[in-house]
């Protein structure tokens, strides 16, 4: 069923939801952006609908709700381990279609890769229900349509924002009773049908071609551009790498914690082993690694779609104006040339 709900009424509903749910949505952090007098929009706990930034793309993705930047996994006392705990509430996330697809990609990585589900991801992920935020046209760096992530039916509720009300499509029985007294509407979410950018997934047909792709001069062209800052990894909804570190709390070193923090494959030490040996020592090689993971490796492994969902946040966030979508299109062109040579 669909309803029209005023902000005022929605806030009452949010308030009642809060007894069972933590509600996350893109929130504006004024003047907290990278550059002076710019804002940052990222996911945070909300308590009213006015806090939700619905008319801008968030700088950071909602992945941090299910995969926190820093997460304690074990606590140590002198003689024992203790598993870290999480809050006992369920989680509601306001997010866009691309991000819902993105979290499905994370599900593959954390729940299905290898033969063991990741305990820490799973315990948060199981709590989550999605509230789809409708996108009208997307933004200039979006390429969700090319990645097939522009549409979804995978949500509990979907919302369209108006000035002081919202339309809401409630699919989940759990939430249906809450809206019993609201005015019904015929709202169903619409989806972006076309982006300004079209991205072609490279048609890499065999290992030989893959190895030729490794040697393309394309990658070297980024050596002088990419600063290996890792911002693209941080904002990416599908980047799932982490590093585990132990810390001690006190001077005497008796108590401590094992934690995971996000890791970036663009950082020089991502592959560094004790003793100092490291692989992929140039920015170009690291960008190649990331690009192929997003549009080739993941797809090969899971025999599904590519990993990238086309949210375009990496383009938005890159301080060196490197466009991932442009990189993939350059790559596809090169692969087409390689395929053409082979077919002759």
């Amino acid at each position: 069923m669909s309803y029209t709900v005023s902000f005022e009424r929605m806030n009452e509903l949010i308030q009642s939801l809060q007894s069972n749910y933590k509600i996350f949505a893109p929130v504006r952090f004024e003047k907290r952006g990278r550059y002076s007098d710019t804002d940052m929009v990222r996911y945070a706990n909300i308590s009213c609908v006015e806090e939700i930034v619905h008319d801008e793309k968030s700088d950071f993705s909602p992945k941090e709700v299910v995969f926190p930047v820093t997460q304690a996994i074990l606590y140590f006392t002198e003689s024992e381990f203790m598993e870290s705990r999480v809050h006992d509430k369920k989680i509601l996330i306001f997010l866009r279609s691309c991000d819902i697809h993105g979290i499905r990609r994370l599900d593959n990585m954390f729940l299905r890769n290898g033969n063991v589900a990741d305990f820490y991801y799973k315990r948060l992920r199981e709590k989550v229900k999605f509230v789809l935020m409708e996108c009208h046209d997307g933004w200039d760096t979006c390429f969700c349509v090319s990645m097939g992530s522009n549409e979804t039916s995978d949500y509990s509720m979907a919302v369209r924002f108006h000035d002081d009300s919202l339309e809401i499509d409630v699919k989940d029985e759990e939430f249906e009773p809450m809206f019993g007294k609201e005015a019904q509407s015929d709202f169903t979410p619409e989806f972006v049908k076309q982006n300004a950018i079209t991205v072609k997934i490279p048609d890499i047909r065999d290992k030989d071609t893959l190895h030729e792709v490794y040697n393309l001069p394309l990658w070297q062209s980024y050596n002088s551009r990419c600063q290996s800052c890792g911002a693209c990894n941080a904002v990416c909804i599908t980047c799932s790498c982490f590093t585990t570190t132990d810390v001690v709390y006190s001077e005497n070193g008796r108590m401590g914690e094992r934690r995971r923090v996000w890791a970036s494959c663009q950082h020089e030490d991502f592959t560094a082993m004790a003793g100092g040996h490291r692989f992929r020592t140039t920015p170009g090689e690291r960008l190649r690694f990331r690009a192929l993971h997003k549009v080739y490796d993941y797809r090969q492994r899971f025999k599904t779609e590519q990993m990238c969902v086309g949210c375009g946040r990496c383009d938005d966030r890159c301080p060196e104006f490197i466009s991932f979508s442009a990189m993939i299109n350059r790559l596809s062109e090169e692969v087409d040339k390689l395929n053409e040579v082979k077919s002759k």
Binding site: F110, S240, F242, T243, Y296
Partner: peptide, 14 residues
Amino acid sequence: SCAIGKCGHCKIDE
């Protein structure tokens, strides 16, 4: 970091 296919450090192609 994990040894169970999550952390990503040991990945080479797929």
